[in-house]
Nucleic acid binder design. Structure first.
Lengths: 208, 208
DNA sequence: CATCAATCCGAGAGTTACTGTCATAAGACG
DNA sequence: CGTCTTATGACAGTAACTCTCGGATTGATG
């Protein structure tokens, strides 16, 4: 395209994504898009990996190179790093509950506003399909492990502190219920408000 | 065996388990016993259903008649009815937290004292195997649904009350962490104490 | 005791998710 | 342009299920 003269500025701009990387990202998106379309048309169980691969114009082998399992199309734990960063950014002396609240809320807001229809589809699949539900629940366990690890590092508590893990698990579960409620009402309510309601309810139940 | 004279008393006593039912229970136990033995020897993933069926001297077809999936050998939700009964027996006006505590504790104590080694194996498999972990987590969701349903019926709240579900989920998660802690320490500590510690920690975190 | 209906079981074929290997084609790079 | 790396596709294979069907076992009845 451009003459042979090297253009470092353009290189730097293009560097984050070489042609190869761009193509990979594109096929990854194509696979997921084809899958979600087929899922809405035929349901999750009614759609085979071969069909998805056909629709995305890749071979089944390639499908499994991009998504190790069919479930991974739906679950996706790409939000954990966001919450991890947010949690690490909280001040050291802050109470655990407040740190978690301030980490969950921005992450949730971002997810819900960025791609609400995809999130709704995911939650719908989670309700309908036992396998997806199970995997999502397992992801929540992963999240609890992650957050408890970060917090224990920060406070110097042992990594398997029952007390810390209990708090993290309880808060995460309450927030999860808020998200589920959000999804079951079609995403019309404000997630932040729902999370606050959840946490307030837990506080009320435990302070009585 | 006995003379032809009809013996209604014996009939009534034998009624709960006819020959057929007894046989079914026996093969069910045989399958599970064989499976657990093979699991400890070769691991969960290293054991095929065919091997289990062979060891239990049944056909693979029969295996799937008794256990719809291989995971069902391990997860088993036979404790939900116990908790359900306990929860329904609680007085109507009691706070949710107290009702749950008084329902969880006896059930847990029973599970842990009745067959501790089996429970430990289950928890160990849950740690090691992602599929089992996911299924167990899904069972916890089922439990939350069940308990929230019972409690909402009792208090007249709507069945999908976010507040109620958040509290139930938080308490269940905290208790789950207690059980996990119990298992990770080889079952040497007292479950009841661990549950109390968990719930106290949540209370402390939310009352600050 | 004989029989009949319900139910349980085993055999076999088929589907699907996933794994591993290998040859080939397409980008990266000097 | 040549080479080297890497992505891809074709293929074979495994394991967890699902479905169906004929035969055996059980439990009730005449």
């Amino acid at each position: 395209m451009t003459p042979a003269a090297p253009t470092p500025i353009e290189d730097l701009l293009a560097a984050p994504l070489g042609l190869r990387e761009r193509k990979k990202l594109k096929t990854r998106r194509a696979i997921r898009a084809a899958a979600f379309r087929l899922f809405t048309e035929q349901g999750y169980d009614g759609t085979t990996v071969d069909q998805i691969a056909d629709a995305a114009e890749v071979s089944p082998s390639t499908f499994f190179r991009y998504f190790p399992t069919k479930e991974d199309l739906v679950v996706g734990d790409e939000y954990d790093p966001v919450m991890e960063a947010a949690l690490r950014a909280r001040p050291a002396g802050e109470p655990v509950l407040e740190s978690m609240r301030q980490s969950f809320l921005p992450a949730l807001r971002q997810i819900v506003t960025a791609e609400p229809e995809e999130m709704l589809l995911r939650m719908r699949l989670m309700q309908e399909n036992a396998v997806i539900r199970a995997r999502s629940a397992a992801e929540m366990i992963r999240t609890v492990d992650l957050l408890a690890g970060i917090l224990s590092d920060r406070t110097g508590e042992p990594r398997d502190s029952l007390e810390l893990r209990a708090v993290v698990a309880a808060v995460t579960a309450a927030c999860g219920q808020a998200v589920e409620h959000w999804a079951q009402h079609g995403g019309s309510e404000d997630v932040v408000t729902l999370v606050e309601r959840s946490l307030d309810a837990v506080a009320a139940a435990f302070s009585a």
